[in-house]
Amino acid sequence: MVKITFIQPDGSSREIEAEPGTSVMETALANNVDGITAECNGSAACATCHAYFEEDRLNSLDAMAEHENDMLDFAACERRSGSRLSCQIKVTEALDGITVTLPEMQ
């Protein structure tokens, strides 16, 4: 199991045991973590699964495709250097202990 800590915009946080192979977006939804809408259910088409990943661990995440890169510019909340579409990030051992901060709005 891989531990992921989700932090809400109000600062509250929850640690979740994520299953390798699923996506971070699916992990959040399966555990009723607020703040992810995921209208397109992982097709990288809606930008409503936007989340801020810990910046010094971005290298351990799946690489960003051009499509995701473009989509992130149009997320409802400001794009920052840790911004990713959480549906495009697969849970792997490399993510263990990472924190994922949710935006104010999707």
Partner: peptide
């Protein structure tokens, strides 16, 4: 209140033309 709607569908076939 802002809520996601289903006008563009959902899931893998979520409207390609949304944007």
């Amino acid at each position: 209140d802002r809520h996601a709607h289903l006008g563009f569908g959902a899931g893998p076939h979520f409207c390609a033309g949304t944007w």
